[in-house]
Design a protein around this nucleic acid. Structure first.
Length: 491
RNA sequence: GCUGGUGUGGUGUAGUUCGGUCCAUCAUGACGGACUCUCGAUCCGUCGACCCGGGUUCAAAUCCCGGCAUCAGCACCA
């Protein structure tokens, strides 16, 4: 039997040199679970090899996937949260426009590129037919003259484009004279209307990767043709393209895909409340729900770098998270559909308070419930547990306290403190420690379930385990008249 | 249509480079049990896979040929 490989696969061509990785998102929204794969895999390799990582905002498209001004800062935060550190280099493509335009002029002068004034539809015909379009024979001087007309506004959007001169006989149609720069007249959120001619991803990214000395590109396999295009350009410029690794397409059962544009549209239409709506697969939402960065790291490293298209259940991520947080999450009692019971306590000697551990095995301190027994004891349990008891012999175990017998009229009596055999253990609250709360759950939309939560002094943001319910994060501490707000994490 | 990628239990994953150490790893899941004053945790057990068909070979998950399935690219998106 072979030795089982641990962690990520070996990186090709990584010996004896300084490695540079990069993560290059379009800031058209905050990062999604899908993006986190790029952040985590690249930074993980950088960490293992003592390499550097570049965070580059590829924000040169202002029409179909326009950048969002706020998203830059969000992504900075999310990158830091996911990796525990800032990137070694942070760049904005939109601040580097002059470089791309200079490079484009060089390429035109060397006839690596030419200006094409065919319409997109016209060019498509020649591309499919493997024929040269009329512009293809332009000399470098002619292309440079046309280039000036692109820059000065003579050509309107869609009337001219810079193409890389490849080979119309390329067997892969995607590689035949692909477009490198085009005219966009809209406003960029950062640089406004300063530029008319903008590079497309394949041109911009190719130049940047060389400039930044990127040695390894690790990204989704949907960009395989992008690699081939960029390699064509690198060959013409006498550069060596970085090593490139790919992963396949991922779907998470609970979310489907991770389209930032789609989410943006759904938020604008009101279907979701915001980018941190707990039903959304954004990093912000996952953080809000109490997932840890480490659980995401384990999740992606375990999935590795296969080019298979996969569909994984969120349960895999949840299992990692449970394992990580269980030992440090205090226990609390939370009742959904609470019902009150007035218990006769005459059969037992009642203590004046109850001391409960915050964790069954770890030393996380205790909490104390005062018990008011002047006229019996009032307790709250879940309606479902009451119904369960009434369908049987009526006996329940109040966890860590006493066995009781309930009746259908909302009453009951204390039996004894010892636990009887086979009695169902239920979580409960003593009257006086219950606080109004809502639990935000992702299953039925961002619904707010009214609940009763045990009084506590945990801070906002604390991850707790609700006994017999599951993990949740305290999003807002309750206050006079304002209920506690909890966000469901997982079971 | 053209081009490229990928097919291992329910879901992922290791193994494929260089055929034998693989009646195929690990995790998750489901089911059952032990323990526990949570339906959590821990422990134990069970279930379950090499896309199909040929070929080469003493020997194929691994190499070759042919299918099939599936995903992606063929944008003046990133």
């Amino acid at each position: 039997m072979h030795e089982r490989r641990e962690g990520l696969p070996e990186l090709p061509n990584s010996e004896g040199r300084e490695l540079v990785f990069r993560f290059a998102p379009n800031p058209n929204g905050p990062l999604t679970l899908g993006h986190s794969r790029g952040v985590i895999i690249n930074s993980e390799y950088a960490r293992q090899h003592g390499g550097r990582i570049v965070l580059r905002f590829d924000d040169t498209g202002i029409k179909t996937k326009p950048p969002l001004a706020e998203a830059y800062g969000w992504i900075d935060d999310e990158f830091r949260w996911l990796t525990g550190r800032a990137p070694d280099v942070r760049l904005l493509a939109s601040e580097r426009m002059d470089l791309y335009l200079d490079k484009a002029r060089d390429c035109l002068a060397q006839r690596i590129c030419y200006v094409c004034t065919c319409t997109a539809d016209e060019f498509k015909v020649t591309r499919v037919a493997r024929e040269a379009c009329p512009c293809r024979s332009r000399s470098s001087e002619q292309s440079l003259a046309e280039w000036e007309k692109m820059l000065d506004g003579t050509y309107a959007e869609g009337e001219a484009v810079v193409r890389v001169l490849t080979d119309m006989e390329e067997s892969n149609p995607a590689l035949r004279d692909w477009p490198a720069l085009r005219i966009q007249t809209g406003e960029h959120p950062l640089v406004g209307t300063r530029y008319r001619v903008w590079p497309l991803l394949d041109f911009q990214s190719a130049i940047d990767d060389e400039e930044q000395g990127v040695t390894h590109i690790i990204r989704g396999k949907d960009l395989m043709d992008s690699t081939r295009k960029q390699t064509q350009l690198y060959d013409k410029l006498g550069w060596t393209y970085p090593e490139t690794l790919y992963w396949g397409r991922v779907k998470v059962h609970e979310f489907g895909g991770f389209s930032t544009s789609q989410m943006r549209a759904d938020i604008e239409s009101g279907e979701f409340s915001d980018w941190d709506d707990i039903r959304l697969p954004t990093i912000r939402a996952l953080r809000r729900r109490g997932f840890t960065a480490e659980s995401l790291r384990l999740f992606w490293v375990e999935l590795g770098l296969t080019q298979k298209d996969i569909s994984v259940p969120l349960a895999t991520l949840e299992a990692h998270n449970s394992g990580l947080v269980d030992a440090s999450t205090p226990r609390l009692s939370l009742l959904r559909d609470p019902v009150r019971l007035a218990l006769d306590v005459s059969a037992v000697e009642m203590p004046s308070e109850l001391v409960l551990p915050n964790h069954p095995t770890e030393d996380l301190g205790v909490r104390t419930w005062p018990l008011d027994t002047d006229s019996g004891l009032e307790v709250l349990i879940e309606k479902g547990d009451l119904e369960f008891a009434l369908s049987g012999d009526g006996v329940l175990r109040l966890k860590e306290f006493a066995d009781i017998e309930v009746t259908s009229d909302g009453g009951g009596r204390m039996l004894h403190f010892e636990k009887g055999d086979g009695v169902r253990i239920v979580h409960w609250l003593a009257a006086g420690v219950e606080r109004d709360a809502v639990l935000l759950h992702d299953c039925e939309g961002e619904l707010q379930h009214p609940c009763m939560l045990e009084s506590n002094d945990h801070a906002e943001g604390t991850l707790v385990q609700l006994e017999r319910v599951g993990f949740a994060r305290i999003e807002q501490v309750g206050d006079r008249g304002r209920p506690w707000r909890l966000v469901w994490t997982h079971g």
